[in-house]
């Protein structure tokens, strides 16, 4: 049985899709069987970031509505054999997703894959709710600024109340992924500090992704940063995050691109 991991944030533009692609690819690079699923129906991007946009024939909506078989819609990544993508439809909207259909697709994916990584749309409405509904684990992507932190807090509340696990009285594992972190700006007080974000959200920290041009470069090339430049600072941060996700203990630090100069060693593992 595979694990369902939702990547969510509430706020848009904080790096959900980039993180979905990078975490998914990093998991696959560690020989896990991974599928990344784009729930952002109508505004699909994951296929672009994964470099699969020209190979999309069927999509999630076709499968949910029974017009295509799951195997027809899955696109296997050309670089990593164990990585697949299930794209969203660009022409439909989120109302085309049905709860039953999503449940069926997720159940089917669980049988084939070790990890089902769901890229949630922004917001707290139907699309986001359906994306998180079957999750076993959640990665909450947050930028170190107040509006993102507040929206993440809202999403954590929903994860604890509206998901299938929460309704069954179980706990969903929540992890905080801090993205676009700039240590220098945080030190100058222009960004929230890591301690502040952790204090507000009080969920365990799974990784700090430094602000880096590498991420944008990789996205424009249609490759997750962990595939495009595995030695870059953000890629290393994503690899560390994936190891923590799999239960390993890894010291928390912010990787930097400057040679020989490692980021400050952070002490927090959990909130």
């Amino acid at each position: 049985m595979g694990k369902v991991l939702v990547v969510t944030s509430g706020k848009g533009g904080v790096g959900k899709t980039t993180s979905t692609a990078s975490l998914g690819a990093a998991l696959a690079q560690e020989n896990q069987k991974v599928v990344v699923v784009d729930f952002d129906v109508g505004l699909r991007n994951l296929d672009l970031v994964m470099g699969a946009e020209r190979r999309v024939v069927f999509d999630l909506i076709n499968v949910v509505q029974g017009d295509a078989k799951l195997a027809q819609a899955l696109i296997r990544d050309k670089r990593v054999e164990t990585l697949s993508i299930l794209p969203a439809s660009q022409t439909r909207d989120k109302d085309a997703l049905t709860a039953d259909g999503v449940a069926r697709v997720i159940a089917e994916l669980r049988e084939t894959f070790d990890w089902i990584v769901c890229d949630s749309p922004a917001g707290i409405e139907r699309g986001a709710q359906l994306a998180m509904h079957h999750a076993d684990e959640a990665v909450v992507v947050t930028n170190p600024e107040v509006s993102s932190v507040r929206d993440s807090d809202r999403i954590i509340g929903l994860l604890d109340s509206t998901t299938a696990k929460a309704k069954a009285g179980e706990k969903i594992n929540k992890h905080l992924l801090l993205t676009r972190y700039d240590a220098a700006r945080a030190a100058r007080g222009e960004m929230l500090r890591v301690e502040d974000v952790l204090e507000i959200l009080s969920i365990p920290l799974i990784g700090i992704i430094p602000e880096s041009e590498e991420v944008l470069r990789a996205s424009n090339l249609g490759a997750p940063v962990t595939l495009n430049n595995p030695d870059s600072a953000p890629a290393r941060a994503y690899f560390d995050a994936v190891r923590r996700l799999r239960g390993e203990t890894v010291d928390m630090n912010v990787p930097t691109d400057r040679k020989g100069l490692f980021g400050k060693l952070f002490k927090w593992r959990a909130a």
Partner: peptide
């Protein structure tokens, strides 16, 4: 969490954690 409401008209409310902005 932000967006959550806790209401208890019959007595005291004790929150062991924090009450977020928007809650």
């Amino acid at each position: 969490r932000s967006g959550q409401t806790v209401s208890f008209p019959d007595g005291d409310v004790v929150v062991l954690g924090s009450v977020a902005s928007g809650a």
